[in-house]
Computed example of a mutant assay.
Amino acid sequence: MMRSLWTGATGMIAQQFHIDTVANNLANVNTTGFKKNRVDFEDLVYQHQVLAGTPATSVSEIPTGVNVGHGVKVAATQKLFEIGSFQATGNKLDLALTGEMAFFKIQMPDGTFSYSRDGSFKIDSNQQVVTSNGYLLEPPIILPENAILNTLMVSEEGEVTVKIGNDIRPTTIGQLELYRFVNPAGLQAVGKNLFRETVASGQEIPGMPSQEGYGSVLQGFLEMSNVKIVEEMVNMIVAQRAYESNSKTIQTSDNMLSTAIGLKR
């Protein structure tokens, strides 16, 4: 059987995965805090028929050798944490981070923690600041009774203040903390705009807004997806043409086999 049939098949499988990744990026073009994925490919094992450097004569050697590859596979998918554009909302509980690698820390129902760039927070019935799925912000921010929500302010340094009842001066009710990782690309995306710490990402590095490397907090803004539609459309065209090209190698190999089989006639 011709190896080119299997080589072409690996190319088609790889480009299908590429299209799947592009489709997910485009599907999340309006997802708050979404970070696009990139696919990295690598070539498969080579069959060496003649090794480079093999002696040809007593005074010379073969300069390049003879080898043939066996296709391609997906080596990795990487989250690109380039910062997205900011959208002004005017909502007091919408927060954006100017630091490219900083994250909010979110407490999950099972007591573990996840991390997010999505700053579209809400207030639940217990006056707690939560995500859209009801997960608590860590450290917790809880509005006191009689707090006037439209006076809630979050400074660039992450200090949270609000006016309570008839008080003229705002009261500090909490302080936002941010978190970084040595290798954010190693974080595990788990859906719901959340990431989990892994061995590859390294342990969390806590810090405060406006510290070097953490950026500041923008109240009344949301960070949008960093997906660029034109870029993804170009990637889709490239993947489609590569898929077609690989299918042509399979068709050509099939035609060659058909010609070989027909030699007896």
Rank of each mutant, 00 (worst) to 15 (best):
Q240L: 12
Q219Y: 07
G215V: 09
N235A: 08
I229V: 14
Q211S: 13
L222M: 07
R241M: 10
S216I: 06
A239K: 12
V230S: 13
Q211V: 02
L218P: 00
A239C: 08
Y214E: 06
G215C: 12
F221T: 05
E212V: 11
V234E: 15
V238A: 04
F221Q: 14
E232F: 09
R241F: 07
Q240M: 10
V217E: 09
V217M: 13
V234F: 13
G213Y: 03
A239Q: 04
Q219E: 11
V217K: 00
Q240G: 04
E232M: 09
N226H: 06
V230F: 07
V230W: 01
L218C: 07
E223T: 05
V217S: 08
N235T: 10
I237V: 15
N235H: 13
Q211N: 14
M224F: 03
Q240R: 05
V227I: 13
S210I: 05
E212G: 00
K228L: 05
A239D: 07
E231R: 12
Y243A: 04
Q219W: 08
L222N: 10
M233A: 14
E212Q: 14
L222P: 02
F221C: 02
L222W: 03
E231Q: 15
V230M: 12
Y243H: 12
M236D: 04
I229N: 02
V217P: 01
M236S: 07
V238Q: 12
E231G: 02
Y214R: 04
I229Y: 00
Q211C: 00
E223S: 11
Y214C: 05
Y214T: 02
S225T: 14
A239M: 03
Q219A: 06
G213V: 07
V238D: 15
M224L: 12
N226Q: 08
V234T: 15
R241W: 02
I237D: 08
M236K: 09
Y214G: 13
S225Y: 14
V230T: 15
N226G: 07
G213L: 09
G215M: 06
K228W: 00
S210M: 15
G215K: 13
V234I: 15
L218A: 09
G215S: 10
M233G: 11
E223P: 02
G213T: 12
V238G: 10
S216T: 12
L218D: 04
G215Q: 13
E232I: 05
E212N: 11
E232N: 03
N235Y: 05
Q219D: 13
S216F: 13
S210R: 10
E223C: 08
V234L: 10
V227G: 05
V217C: 10
M224V: 00
E231K: 14
E232L: 06
